[in-house]
Amino acid sequence: MVWQLARDDLGALGCGCSLLGSGGGGSPRVLELALRRTLAERVDVHEVADLDPAMPCLAAGFVGSTILLTERLPDPEPFAVPIAALERWTGGRIPAACTIEVGGLNGLSALHLAGDLHLVDADLMGRAMPSIDQLSVIVDRVPGLVAACWTGGDGVVLVEGARGPDLERLVRTAVQTAGGYSVLVVAGLTVGDLAEHAVLGSWRRALELGRSYVAARTDGTAALAAAIGARLLGRGLVAASSTGPDGRLMGFDVRSVGGPVLRLVARDEILVALVDGAVEAATPTIVVALDDLTHEVLEAHELAVGRHVAVLSLPGPTWWDTPARRGHVAPQRYGIEGLDGAA
C-alpha cells in the first residue's frame, strides 16, 4: 500500500529517527531543515509489496562524521554522483530507493531522492549502527552488490562484490578522502531482495514513534515512555563515567537517591543498560537517553557527568533475531563480553 509522507511530518519523522538512533546516527535536524525547503508537500512512500520485486533498487545514506554534517552542509543533491556511477556500472536506470539506516540523520537522507525515484519504506539496519558491514544486505551476503562512495568533488569510488570488512575499510578511506563525511549508495539490489534482506516499514515506525513522542513530550517521563511504547529503565544523575580497556567504550553511572544503580555502556550508540548489574537492554534493543527536564533525545556523546537523564528502552528490529544475524549486532560485536543476557 502506498502512503504519503507530508512535508509537515518531517519534524515528527526526525524525532522518531532520533529515538531509533539509540543515541547514535547523528541528529536529523540539519537534513530536516534542508528538506523543508526542497521536499514536495506530499511524497509517496511505497511498501515493498507495492512494487515489482524485480525492480532494481538502491539504498543511500551519509557515512562518516555526523557532527561535521552540521558544520559543512551537504550538497542539495548529495547522491547524484554515486548514483550516476552505479547506473553506468549496472547498465540501467535504478528506479527505487530506500535509506541505509533509519536511526539518526540517515532516516531522512533518502528523502533527497523523492520525486526522482520510488521511495521504498525499508532500511538496512532498523536502527542506527556504526559500521558498513552491519548493513543487512552485507550481513546476509546478498550477491551482486555494488557500492559507490563519494570521494570529494566529482570523485567516486565503486566497489563490487567486496567482503563486508573490506567494504568497511574502503568506505572509511573514502570518508577520509572526502573530508570527514561522505555518501554511500548500495546498488545491485531489487525490491524483492529488500523483502527478505532488509528491515521493512522503517519510516512508518519512525513516523508513528515521532508523532507519539511529540504529542506526549511535555507529559511526565513515565507517561511519555508509555506513549511511545518504551520501557522506562530509570532516571537519575550521571554521577561518573569510566572508559573501557579499548578506550572507545564508555560507562556511565546513573544514580538516584536510594534507587537502583543504572549503568549505560556506550560507544557511538548506547549499547547496553544494566540495572543493579542485571542487563535490562542490550543491542540490538534500542536504548534511549532523554534529558530528564526537556525530554530532548540525547546522543551518546551528549551524556556527561552532572546531567539528569531518563533512560528508556524500545524494542529492537526483529529482523536481527536469528543466530546468524545476531552476532553482527550483539554487545560482543562491540567488544563487550558477557553482557548478552538481555532481559
Partner: peptide, 12 residues
Amino acid sequence: STTWHLDALLRR
C-alpha cells in the same frame, strides 16, 4: 576489566 562488567558479574 570494566566497572560495568563487575556490575554484571556481581548480579550473575
